[in-house]
Amino acid sequence: MAPKRTLIVCRKPPYGNALAREALDVALTAAVFEQPLAMLFIGDGVWQLLDQQDSAGIKQKNHSKVISAFPLYELTELYIDADAMQQRQLSHDHFVVAVKPLAADELGDFIARFDTVLSF
């Protein structure tokens, strides 16, 4: 079977809904199966990438720690919605990993390059 090009789209902020974390688990599993995978953080999903998350007070696992481990799993195809970043006045210095910005007019063509899109 030919590998499928798969995109995981993350639109939820972390912690408020388990879907944000569950998307990361899918990504880590795909990496273990050595399937080509990219992730795109859109809208409020960009908040997942913030450094300095401290979730001890809400008794949840630290979301950013999972993301910071992505390079160890060779998960490096990480993309961000540049408009969402700008609207929230975020810069790459705020992020726990390196992400590649995509402008609004690039997003549609980017998504269309994949065989499967899993949305969370």
């Binding site: 079977m1 590998p3 499928k4 798969t6 899918v26 599993t29 795909a30 273990v32 199966f33 399937q35």
Partner: peptide, 8 residues
């Protein structure tokens, strides 16, 4: 893994 397998 069963989701990844399903995708393949």
């Amino acid at each position: 893994g069963q989701l990844i397998d399903a995708n393949i």
